[in-house]
Amino acid sequence: MKVLTANFITCAIKDCKASPKSFPLHFQNAELELQELEFQPDFLRHILPRIDWDSLRVTANELGFPSIPETKPEGEELNNEELLRNLHQLLLETQVMEGKLVCDNCGHEYMIKEGIANFLLPSHLV
């Protein structure tokens, strides 16, 4: 699972959606793999506006990434190639292959296997 995807997902349990604690889900025991992808700065510039930056910082920290800027890059900063390359690597090239995602609100754990996260719930919660 890509780090960017973690910015788009939350707990699958309906009652958790209203709680701010259900986003972002928290990575645990994550095994990472780097899958190279061509660097496309314009593509990244079109993705950044839709990112929830505070949550991305939480995720990056959990995955052991060196600190990313405190605020979302804007204006001139979007021409900083080194910054964009770092974000490209974090958001698009880093894959979580194994591990789990945990909801801070209900404690439910979603397993990630072979890079695919399983959001099916136990039958008593379906």
Partner: peptide, 20 residues
């Protein structure tokens, strides 16, 4: 060049894990 990107498949019921 097309930069469109496959992000992920999620094993899930409908779109439940996607953020509002």
């Amino acid at each position: 060049t097309t930069t469109s990107l496959y992000l992920d498949s999620l094993t899930a019921d409908l779109c439940r894990p996607l953020r509002p």
